[in-house]
Amino acid sequence: MTLREIKEILQAQVLAGEEFLDRQPSCACGSDLLSDVLAFTKENSVLLTGLTNPQVIRTAEMSDIIGIIFVRGKKPDNYTVELATIKKIPLLATHLPMYESCGKLYLQGLKGCSEV
């Protein structure tokens, strides 16, 4: 599944990194705990989160996360979007809450990070 397909499934808006939507995550992680993300995600994953501060982008950078999806209508500020653009990390935003977002992607075959 590509980020572009994720965008369709979650009816998401692209906030940054439109040119990277062909990326294909190998798994996904849904979390609002950045230490958990650092400890338990695998490389090449996509992150679903309700956090929108710049450290989310940093955490993604350090963990080789290839895209971030902000859930339940949350949007980061300009600085955070700019940082993601610099770090080449695409940002999507969906109005769906965390559970529904994860569930829809999982139903379409996107595995969790502990399953790959």
Partner: peptide, 11 residues
């Protein structure tokens, strides 16, 4: 901010 889960040192 999402920090302070207490996994840093062990990680």
């Amino acid at each position: 901010m999402g920090f302070g889960a207490g996994y840093g040192l062990s990680n």
